[in-house]
Design a binder for these strands. Sequence first.
DNA 1: TCTGGGGTCCTAGGACCC
DNA 2: TCTGGGGTCCTAGGACCC
Length: 413
Amino acid sequence: MIALADCNNFYVSCERVFRPHLHDRPVIVLSNNDGCAVARSNEAKALGVPMGAPYHQVRYLCERNGVQVFSSNYELYGDMSGRVVSVLRRFASELEVYSIDESFLNFSGLSDPFALAVSMRQTVGQWTGIPISVGLGPTKTLAKLANRLAKKSGSGCMQVEAGEDDILSRVAIEDVWGVGRRLAVRLRRVGALDACGFIHLPPSVVRSIGGVTLERTWRELHGIPCLDMEEIAPARKNTCCSRSFGKPLTGLAELEEAVANYAVRAIRKVRSEGSLACGIQVFVMTNRFREDQPQYSNARALALDEPTDDPIRVIRRAKELLRSIFRPGYSYKKAGVILLDLVSSHSRQGLLFEEFGDDRTRGFVDAVEEVAARYGPIGGFWAAQGIDKSWSMRREMRTPRYTTNWLEIPEIG
DNA sequence: TCTGGGGTCCTAGGACCC
DNA sequence: TCTGGGGTCCTAGGACCC
């Protein structure tokens, strides 16, 4: 038996923990750059704020109905997520963190998994302030489906077994885990309108529409496990840092500064995981929503001489790539840096004819990075990152980092 | 005027090898 | 005019997830 614990409206719930007066009130959280609504309280959903709606399109609706709007505060959400997981771990020996707000737990061999799910939900709510829903099923996909029904019904916990056609028929085909918009259209055309219709399709049809991936989903819904628990997240293969700018950029100098910042952030992720990057890609794009403006987007990649975690080298290469794809005369909206083919720093392959960078440089880089990690940009930063950052993203309604920053800890009285 | 960010896997097709 | 068979590797694009 697999359990899926999923935090309800997670980002909104995090904000509410520190602003209890917002319980029962409509709340939304915006994506980076205050762009889209990416989390909505039930009250905001009821008012008709769609998932992913551009904020400028729903702003009037929000203002008229007193919706509380927040910029995203990922430091807070990440920390709260860790707290939820630490409570969940007490309830099962095997746990897979699937996303920032979801974990799978192995509930096999328990006499009363449902009772445990109820108690787990209650404990997480009491200890962290975050409401969760729990779905139970013989496979991950059925646990997901049960979770969706638990949320929809408001009961908080739900268990689904294979072969319960009446329950499966309550889940629309596009709400099945692994079926997105495209596949849903094609499945509807062959008569699979819901999960029940889907499992009664012949496997050959499923295979022809969605390949082996969709057939796995089909088998999982029949109660045949195809997706294992992954307790230890496999090492990442690529990592990306990209942002939309707070204002359009036209000049190379500003773009270089932004790209240098993304390069530094990306390589810090790589360093923190004990990895090295073997390649780097840079991309830029104009605002694709502006049909009245000339459009341009481009990307270029290169292989590094040797796997590296050195921000100086990564910045230099990123700027070279940027200069090779930059074209004057455009209004750039977004840029990004992708570090490719990450390998473990323990298994790096040496160069045939050369030695790795000297120890002095290495010591210097490590020292700067340590200072920056401990004290933030006040402690130190790479000059290429710039000072003004006039291009940085909008985040005008962000709450304090209550749980991770001494200066922003909540005050009482 | 304003429209997010970060990932994975699978497949088809092309380049290349003997 | 006729023009093999069997592989691997890489990449781009499409699908999905949160």
